[in-house]
Lab assay of single mutants.
Amino acid sequence: TFVALYDYESRTETDLSFKKGERLQIVNNTEGDWWLAHSLTTGQTGYIPSNYVAP
Rank of each mutant, 00 (worst) to 15 (best):
W35H: 03
Y6R: 13
L16M: 14
T1D: 11
A4R: 00
S17R: 06
T42W: 02
T12L: 12
S10M: 06
E9S: 09
Q44Y: 09
G21S: 04
A54M: 12
Y8R: 05
T42S: 12
H38I: 15
G46R: 01
A4Q: 01
K19F: 06
Y47W: 15
D15E: 15
Q25E: 12
L16N: 02
R11Y: 09
R11P: 09
F18H: 01
F18Y: 02
S17D: 05
T30M: 13
V3C: 08
F2S: 03
T41V: 14
T42M: 03
R23V: 15
S50E: 04
L5S: 03
T12P: 02
T45P: 01
G43L: 06
W35F: 06
N29C: 14
I48M: 02
V53G: 03
I26S: 04
W35A: 04
N28Y: 08
N51T: 11
S17V: 05
T41I: 12
T41C: 14
A37Y: 01
S17F: 04
E9H: 09
W35T: 04
G43Q: 06
R23I: 15
Y52M: 15
P55L: 10
N51Y: 11
D33T: 10
I48C: 02
E22G: 01
F18N: 00
T1N: 11
L5H: 04
I26E: 01
N51V: 08
S17E: 06
W34S: 07
N51P: 05
V3M: 08
E31F: 13
W35S: 03
A54F: 09
S39I: 04
A4F: 01
K19M: 08
T12N: 14
F18T: 02
W34R: 14
N51Q: 13
L16P: 04
L36I: 08
E22I: 01
S17Y: 03
T30W: 10
D7M: 02
T41K: 12
T14Y: 14
W34E: 05
F18L: 07
T1S: 10
A37I: 04
P55R: 07
K20D: 02
V3Q: 05
E13K: 11
H38L: 15
Y52S: 15
E31A: 13
F18R: 00
W34Y: 13
E9G: 04
G21A: 03
T45R: 11
S50W: 06
T12A: 12
L40I: 10
H38T: 15
L36C: 11
T14D: 12
Q44K: 15
P49L: 06
S10H: 05
R23D: 05
L36A: 03
V27Q: 09
N28A: 13
R11T: 14
S10G: 15
G43I: 02
E22S: 03
W35M: 06
T1P: 08
V53I: 09
L40G: 04
G46T: 01
Y47P: 01
N28V: 10
D33L: 10
T1I: 15
T45H: 07
T30A: 13
A54D: 09
S17H: 05
Q44S: 09
G21F: 04
D15M: 07
D15T: 08
V27E: 07
W34A: 06
D7N: 07
D33R: 09
R11E: 13
R23C: 14
V3F: 08
T41M: 11
T12I: 11
Y6S: 07
G32T: 13
N51E: 12
F2M: 11
T14F: 14
R11I: 12
L5E: 05
E13Y: 07
A54C: 12
L16C: 04
I26V: 12
V27K: 08
L24V: 05
L24F: 15
A37H: 00
D15L: 06
Q25D: 07
F18E: 00
D7A: 05
D33W: 09
I48H: 00
R23G: 05
F18K: 00
E22D: 14
P49I: 02
I48Y: 01
R23E: 13
Y47A: 03
A4C: 08
V27T: 08
I26R: 06
I48W: 00
D33V: 08
Y52N: 05
Y47R: 10
G32C: 11
Q44V: 07
T45V: 12
Y47M: 11
S39K: 06
D33N: 11
R23H: 14
G32H: 12
R11A: 13
T42C: 03
T14L: 13
P55E: 11
T30Q: 14
Y8N: 02
G32R: 12
T42D: 03
Q25V: 15
G32F: 10
P55V: 10
P55A: 11
G32P: 15
T45C: 12
D15K: 08
D7V: 01
D7Q: 03
G43H: 14
D7G: 04
N29P: 14
L5I: 10
Y47N: 05
L24R: 00
E9F: 10
G32A: 14
T30G: 14
W34P: 06
K19Y: 06
N29T: 14
F2I: 05
T41E: 13
S17I: 04
N29S: 14
T41Y: 09
P55T: 08
K20S: 07
K20A: 12
K20H: 05
A4S: 05
Y47H: 05
D7T: 06
T12G: 14
E13P: 13
H38E: 11
Y8S: 02
D7F: 02
P49M: 06
I48L: 05
D7P: 05
K19L: 07
N29G: 14
S10I: 04
I48S: 00
A4H: 01
T42E: 02
P49G: 03
S10A: 15
Y52T: 07
L40T: 07
G21W: 04
F2Q: 04
S17T: 11
A54V: 15
S39Y: 01
A37K: 00
T41R: 11
W35K: 04
S50G: 08
T1M: 14
G43W: 04
